[in-house]
Amino acid sequence: MTVKYTKDHEWVRVEGDVGTVGVSDFAQHQLGDVVFVELPDVGRTLEKGKEAAVVESVKAASDVFAPVSGEVIEVNHDLENEPARVNTGAQTEGWFFKLRLSNPSELDGLMDEAAYKAFVEESN
């Protein structure tokens, strides 16, 4: 099981050919209180780097991009009623969706935990 990060602050946790996607704890902190999440439809094919979901905080709306390409196989419906789960557990209960990876080699271009941490510190 590996967790990889994008420069747009999404994470993807890979188990077999399934990736679980969410936004990083750093991202939820930057967003502030999340009040709405729009999730992709199950069955939709997502392309790496393209719009996949929307997260809205009290302050603003932000796009969530697909960290890797694939087909959406499950979404976290709990976020529809309790969007604040993104704040309380960005990298656990606040996951957005799961997808079946169509091109696992895309993972190679993403950052591991240590690289992401360095990236966040640098951009801060």
Binding site: G32, D33, V35, S57, V58, K59
Partner: peptide, 9 residues
């Protein structure tokens, strides 16, 4: 724009 409490609270 906000303190550690956050906008909602």
């Amino acid at each position: 724009v906000q303190y550690p409490l956050g906008i909602l609270k």
